[in-house]
């Protein structure tokens, strides 16, 4: 438990000392979303019908952008091999790294999302559904993304490969997330979607850190 908190603290500290790595994806998210209303025009009917899709896709792409750097820095300066050889469980450290990565990417985007939903004429129910959906869906994306990040550590430019590896696994989250907003906008119950997203989250909490840990060992073995 101690090492989990120590890892989160260390990674957050590193993020705040080098904010570019976390700000770039966030700014990208902001730009993509704010360009859509400008490009499509201020028609309420069109904007509100594409809102969920645009926001979710932007979050997904921004997550992919940010996941690349999650383990890369530690791999390059040798701290990752020290972590792998430490007496504390690598699994717990990986979990801590995922949590801090999520706090500075997915969590922040989920917090900002109701604001952006407003630009798309989404009603209050829809806004809540977007925020709740993102809070449940983004940790899953970070967890799955960490596997891709760990597998591509040895490569100089792993970005595109990560996308190819993990995008298929993001699709269920994307479909559930957008469908959830759709239901909410029309006043239907969206508990089912939320529970499915939560189930995926629990599943990935259980398996993704294990896979990431093993991928890190494979990547270090070269």
């Amino acid at each position: 438990m101690n090492i989990l908190l120590a890892t989160i603290r260390r990674d957050l500290l590193l993020h705040f000392r080098q904010p570019a790595d976390i700000l770039n994806p966030l700014v990208f998210f902001l730009i993509v979303i704010s360009l859509f209303p400008l490009g499509i025009g201020p028609s309420e009917a069109v904007l509100s019908s594409i809102a969920a899709g645009v926001i979710w896709v932007a979050v997904l792409l921004a997550t992919l952008l940010s996941i690349d750097v999650m383990l890369k820095g530690d791999f390059d300066d040798g701290t990752l091999e020290q972590i792998a050889l430490g007496k504390q469980s690598l699994l717990v450290v990986v979990f801590g790294k995922v949590i801090s990565q999520w706090l500075v990417s997915g969590f922040l985007m989920a917090l900002m999302s109701p604001l952006f939903a407003m630009m798309f004429y989404v009603n209050t129910e829809g806004m809540i559904a977007i925020a709740v959906g993102l809070l449940l869906g983004t940790p899953t994306m970070t967890l799955i993304g960490s596997i891709g990040a760990a597998l591509t550590l040895g490569l100089k430019k792993g970005g595109v490969l990560i996308a190819i590896l993990v995008l298929p696994l993001y699709i269920p989250v994307l479909i559930l997330g957008t469908a959830m907003v759709e239901s909410a906008v029309f006043g239907h119950s969206y508990t089912g979607h939320a529970l499915w997203l939560a189930a995926l989250l629990v599943l990935s909490i259980g398996f993704a850190p294990l896979a990431t840990q093993m991928s890190i060992r494979i990547s270090l073995s070269q």
Binding site: L13, R17, D77, G78, T79, E81, Q82
Partner: peptide
């Protein structure tokens, strides 16, 4: 080979 030291810390 790599010192295992974080530059930012």
């Amino acid at each position: 080979h790599r010192a295992g030291v974080k530059d930012l810390m």
